[in-house]
């Protein structure tokens, strides 16, 4: 403590404090910034049986009807769900976007609502806690109302059968304007945003393309074929798993964070070095 007191009036002390503060914030951010986890894509397919539809209607009435209307016809609070299809239901519920917590410009990805989680005694460690049966029942109910895109099978979304290089080309032509070249997302108008694809599973990506959730346009199977969609999924999953040997990806959102780091940290260090090289030593008798 005494040595700090003695040195705090040192001419370089303020620069040392500035440097330490930069280091603390930079390092702290890199340490605390969320690291992309991966949701599991293996959600079992529900049979489109009559009891499923009846069961799904019950869950819908209890959970969704307050905004979407008792017959999914839509209200001032939420859009009509007639014709959106089972894929849309599966996407919205399994990414936690629905049921919504509060009305907003856009529903963010969040933890799955408790009503769609498995009871505690049926959960297995290491397995996703989503109750796939309940989700499939609601999906079957919505599908029964007016058709629409169905939930893709595991084979439909298998990234192993996709060509990541070809997918990258398609991704750059159709997706990067909103989602960024490695899927880091970006801003849209009126508080909406294109989400980060870092947590998206193969199935979610496929469902998003065929249903066009929220502001996203639709890329149906007749213009962007299922094989081309698998190519894009292979690309997105490949960039998700891309290592960053330098340690800091800086959010991979391009020149904004990279420029900020270069200007604040890089040039800050250069300024400190220049000060150190030319600083006068304080003289006792001056």
């Amino acid at each position: 403590m005494k040595s700090i007191t003695a040195r705090r009036r040192h001419p370089l002390a303020r620069y040392a404090v500035l440097f330490l503060a930069l280091l603390l914030f930079g390092g702290g951010y890199a340490f605390l910034a969320p690291v992309g986890g991966k949701a599991d894509a293996s959600i079992a397919q529900g049979a489109n049986a009559v009891d499923d539809i009846a069961e799904g209607k019950k869950i819908f009435e209890a959970t969704c009807a307050s905004c979407h209307g008792v017959n999914a016809e839509g209200t001032a609070m939420g859009p009509s769900l007639i014709g959106v299809g089972a894929a849309s239901v599966d996407f919205q519920i399994s990414t936690g976007r629905m049921p919504a917590a509060a009305p907003a410009a856009q529903m963010p990805r969040k933890a799955i609502a408790p009503v769609f989680e498995l009871p505690l005694d049926q959960r297995k460690p290491g397995q996703p806690t989503i109750d796939t049966k309940k989700v499939a029942q609601v999906a079957a109910f919505i599908q029964s109302l007016g058709g629409g895109p169905t939930v893709p099978t595991d084979a439909d979304v298998d990234p192993a059968t996709g060509n990541a290089a070809k997918g990258g080309e398609l991704f750059r032509a159709n997706c990067i304007q909103c989602h960024n070249f490695v899927g880091s997302g970006g801003a849209l108008t009126g508080g909406k945003h294109a989400p980060d694809l870092g947590k998206a599973s193969a199935k979610e990506i496929y469902e998003a393309m065929i249903t066009g959730p929220q502001a996203m346009p639709v890329f149906n199977d007749s213009v962007i074929t299922p094989q081309e969609k698998r190519d894009m999924i292979a690309y997105i999953l490949a960039v998700q798993n891309q290592p960053h040997p330098g340690g800091a990806s800086l959010g991979v959102i391009g020149p904004v964070t990279e420029g900020l780091a270069a200007w604040v940290v890089g040039i800050g260090l250069l300024v400190l070095a220049a000060i150190w090289i030319t600083a006068k030593r304080r003289q006792v008798n001056d």
């Binding site: 398609l170 066009g212 639709v218 149906n220 213009v223």
Partner: peptide, 16 residues
């Protein structure tokens, strides 16, 4: 990206 021509009947999802 795909190099395919577009049949109007296939580009049929509003919002696409």
């Amino acid at each position: 990206g795909t190099g395919n021509p577009i049949r109007a009947a296939n580009f049929n999802s509003p919002g696409g």
